[in-house]
Amino acid sequence: MSRLLDEEGLPPGMLAPLDEDPGPARRLSRQKSAALVQAAVLAALDAPSPPPRSRRRHEWLMGGALLVVGAAAVATWHLSRRSDSLAPVETPVVAVPAVVEPVRPEPVVPAVDSERAEVAGVMRTGAEAGGDVERAEVAGVGVMRTGAEVGVARAEPDVAGVGMKQTTTGGTEVGVPRTTPDVAVPSPSAKLRGTEMLPSAPAPEDLLRRANGHRATGQWKAAEALYLRVIRTDPQAMSAYVARVASGSLRLEHLGDARGALRQYQEAQRGWPGGVLEEEASHGVTEALRALGDRDGEARALESFLARHPDSPHGVAARTRLREISGR
């Protein structure tokens, strides 16, 4: 499709062209995706039907035609009854009830409704019936992105140099590295203009990107240092939130610092209650507590996690673990 005739644009990255990458739709588990697709295929292929509107029109036409025919039959019947009284010998009465019966239009509409309801029922059931994971995996949900696709800047205030207490660590696999993290990324200089940041200070997005690059090459400590720098730059910004969760993951999985990871996750939860990385943070808390051997705390965290995220991909493992440690 061509893009023209609109003299004003939006800031780059504000509304990116549509693609298959995650967002803005919420994440959907592969099982649910597969169930949704299977239900759609079932409805479309197994119950093929022309568009409902034209079908309904067709049925109304049929009903109308029957009504006319029926009315004609009734009139004929009445006439014939009259003629019966005059000439009782010839009586086509036998045919009358058979013609009159379909005259009533009621059966036509319910037939349509019940059919539609049936299809709807199938769809719902299918959608909630769980799914074929193997098929879902064919969908290619997990695609690494190139740097060019990352050319979207975050919308965060840049206030540099705010002092903060330095806690750290924790995290899950939220910081998936990009294959070419530093390619085709718009320079942050445009963003820096008019802000309070020093001209030479890299934007938090750039730091996060560099951290992802370090993670991709296994330079865990270098990545961690960058996450901490992002947090220090503006502890209240969304980038700091992302950095905390990513740092937690790093500490937990690669730096052997479960306590630091726990603090980091908890800081993320406290600072951004109900934030978009809430599931990652609260799952991280359970993992960190497990690593610390705090079974009671872990059980409480698992219960809380499951209550808030019953559909999480970690749900099955979390329930299993909860049963294991609480004996329930």
């Binding site: 995650p22 997990g142 800047a153 939220v174 997005e205 992802n212 990513a246 978009v276 990652e280």
Partner: peptide, 14 residues
Amino acid sequence: VPSEDAPPDEYVHR
């Protein structure tokens, strides 16, 4: 929540 497959910052932005 973000996808397991998405870099969190991109998902969050969207």
